[in-house]
Nucleic acid binder design. Structure first.
Length: 394
DNA sequence: GATCCACGGGAATACACGGATG
DNA sequence: CATCCGTGTATTCCCGTGGATC
């Protein structure tokens, strides 16, 4: 490295912003306010929602597509914009004292990963319908359902969009159908999931289906460049590297962003001001196959995430068996049997994988190695950031 | 006092293997 | 040889209890 470059590096390090400027912009679990490259899906969703603008309800619907194809990104962004519409008109038209009835159906977003029970579902719907916060305890499930009824009845209705349907640990299809049936008749739902229509019986209840295909390579390149420009110092990611990541990710934005995040984190750690091919390759190496969604991991109950966070730091030989991992995690203030049950449960959900040992030992059933199936470094960093954020703003 | 659900513990079941048995 | 049995470990299943919150 020549002297100029060395000097420039020192100067940049001191005078310029950090290499990683915004972790949120890089996070595979976060969505942009304006998603990139999904104009067609946006139009299809607007077509589907179109009756709402005439004060009518759309039919039940189903949006399906593979992981990392932008379903949640587009839907959450679209809903956040749509929800602003009635609020704007309300302020202008109505007096502050009168309780106004909206002239068109309202939009509700429910994440089935966090609303995993009937109680959670009603609670999520209700808290979206009213401004006040809804208690998590002390109120019965039936009472919540009745409150949803009183909120919706006599209005033009609501479209309830239920994301991440039929994933492990989220709401399954028949539960959704049952819950929806328990709501007033002026409610439509839009389910978002990964199963194609022939793999689900959900479509027997829907009047509209929207399929989403994986991102084309060039679009994924654009997404990576966009995120890099928002989250990293200038010129940190060059186009060729973005192309490499996109080629590897094969249309899966989640995995592509996980690589970008991981590579950037690594580069920042050793003071680079640009991502290199070896950063990218190392990051790619660190992504498991198959890779479970980080936002799914980050919406697990708190103590399960805590177990995973500590699992990340265990050495491989401490993960040689479920029992050994349980012992190694005993520093957590959870009982051994709970930790063990968590590990089995999360293996069931695909968050970790159990790999049966070669049958060498004599006695008993062979143990299983514990292998994380999520991007370790990215999870670690996001988990720690989130915790710090919470303790700053309790 | 009511409510939900995370925890914790333990029972039941599955699996692997060597050795005994028919 | 095929099957069963005993032992030891792994895994799954189930449910009561208590903490946290209203």
């Amino acid at each position: 490295m020549d002297i100029k470059a060395r000097i420039r590096r020192r100067r940049d390090h001191n005078a310029q912003p950090q290499f990683i400027q915004r972790y949120e912009a890089l996070s595979p679990a976060a969505h942009l306010d304006e998603p990139v490259g999904r104009g067609q899906l946006l139009e299809q969703l607007l077509d589907y929602f179109d009756p709402v603008f005439d004060g009518e309800l759309p039919p039940n619907g189903y949006v399906y597509g593979p992981i990392g194809s932008g379903k949640s990104a587009v839907l959450t962004s679209l809903l956040s914009h749509l929800k602003e519409l009635p609020a704007e008109t309300r302020e202008v038209i109505h007096t502050s004292t009168r309780v106004q009835t909206p002239s068109s159906p309202t939009f509700v977003y429910v994440d089935a990963r966090s609303a995993t029970s009937a109680f959670g579902f009603y609670r999520s719907v209700l808290s979206s319908l009213i401004d006040q916060s809804v208690p998590e305890h002390g109120v019965g499930t039936d009472s919540l359902r009745d409150q949803v009824h009183t909120q919706v009845q006599g209005t033009p209705g609501a479209v309830i969009c239920v994301d991440h349907i039929a994933e492990p640990r989220s709401l399954d299809e028949s539960t959704l159908v049952d819950l929806a049936a328990s709501l007033p008749s002026n409610v439509s739902w839009l389910a978002i999931g990964r199963a194609s229509p022939d793999q689900t019986h959900l479509t027997t209840y829907t009047g509209a289906e929207i399929g989403v295909s994986r991102y084309r390579r060039q679009v994924l390149v654009d997404i990576l460049m966009q995120r890099a420009s928002m989250g990293l110092a200038r010129q940190a990611l060059n186009h060729d590297l973005a192309r490499q990541v996109a080629a590897w990710a094969d249309g899966n934005a989640h995995d592509g962003l996980a690589v970008l995040f991981s590579a950037a984190d690594n580069a920042a750690g050793v003071g680079q001001d640009q991502l290199t091919e070896s950063n990218i390759n190392a990051a790619i190496e660190s992504i498991p196959e198959p890779c479970v969604s980080l936002s799914a991991v980050l919406s697990l109950p708190a103590n399960r995430q805590r177990v995973l966070r500590h699992l990340v730091n265990l050495s491989p030989d401490e993960r040689e068996s479920v029992n050994m991992a349980t012992d190694a995690l005993s520093a957590l203030d959870l009982s051994a049997s709970t930790i063990k049950r968590f590990l089995y449960e999360m293996a069931e959900a695909g968050v970790i994988r159990r790999v049966q040992a070669e049958t060498e030992q004599q006695k008993g059933r062979p143990p299983s190695r514990v292998v994380p199936q999520f991007p370790l470094y990215v999870f670690q960093r996001l988990y720690d950031l989130r915790r710090r954020g919470q303790s700053n703003h309790p």
